[in-house]
Simulated assay, not measured.
Amino acid sequence: MVRIIDYKQRQTENGRAFFVLEISAGIEMVKSSTNQFYATSKKAFIASTFDEQTCKALIGTEMPGNVVKKECQAYEYVVKETGELVTLTHRFVYEPEESISNKEDKAIQRLLANENSFSKNGHHKEEFVM
């Protein structure tokens, strides 16, 4: 599950304003380079067609899915706290949760793809190897 925790106003290349929803995947514990654990959470932004009032009302809403790390083309990022310029090759993005029926469909497709799973003559024949 992810939770909408905030929203931000952004602009398209042609100057039109729109809002993005900031989502969080919840708390996770990470071990630092000094072997100490700290709490953090993966966050991502989702573009929306909502107005500001709707975005504000959606804060706290939970949705099925997760925030996952996806590889992307390299880009530069400035760390706000230190001003350091770093090059990143990943982004965190929202990934909707697959429905149970969709998972079942994929399992059936995998089974059907293996033609050796079924009898070819309509009769079950056990083979014994000696």
Rank of each mutant, 00 (worst) to 15 (best):
V2W: 03
I5E: 11
R10L: 06
Q11S: 11
T12V: 04
T12A: 12
N14A: 09
R16E: 10
L21H: 12
I23Y: 00
S24A: 10
I27F: 12
E28H: 10
M29C: 14
M29W: 15
S33R: 11
T34L: 09
Q36I: 05
Y38W: 11
Y38T: 12
Y38H: 14
A39Y: 05
S41K: 11
S41V: 05
K42T: 03
K42D: 09
A44S: 15
I46R: 05
S48F: 05
T49Y: 10
D51H: 06
C55Y: 06
I59Q: 05
I59T: 06
T61I: 11
T61Y: 14
E62C: 12
E62M: 12
P64K: 14
N66V: 07
N66R: 14
V67K: 13
V67H: 13
V68E: 09
Q73S: 14
A74H: 03
E76R: 06
Y77M: 06
V78F: 00
V79M: 05
E81L: 11
E81T: 15
T82S: 02
G83E: 00
E84C: 05
V86D: 09
L88R: 12
R91S: 06
F92M: 10
E97G: 08
S99Y: 08
S101Y: 08
N102I: 01
K103D: 09
K103Q: 14
E104Y: 13
K106M: 07
K106E: 13
I108M: 13
Q109H: 07
R110Y: 01
L111F: 03
N114H: 10
F118M: 08
K120Q: 13
N121P: 03
N121R: 11
H124V: 15
E127L: 13
V129D: 06
M130N: 05
M130W: 00
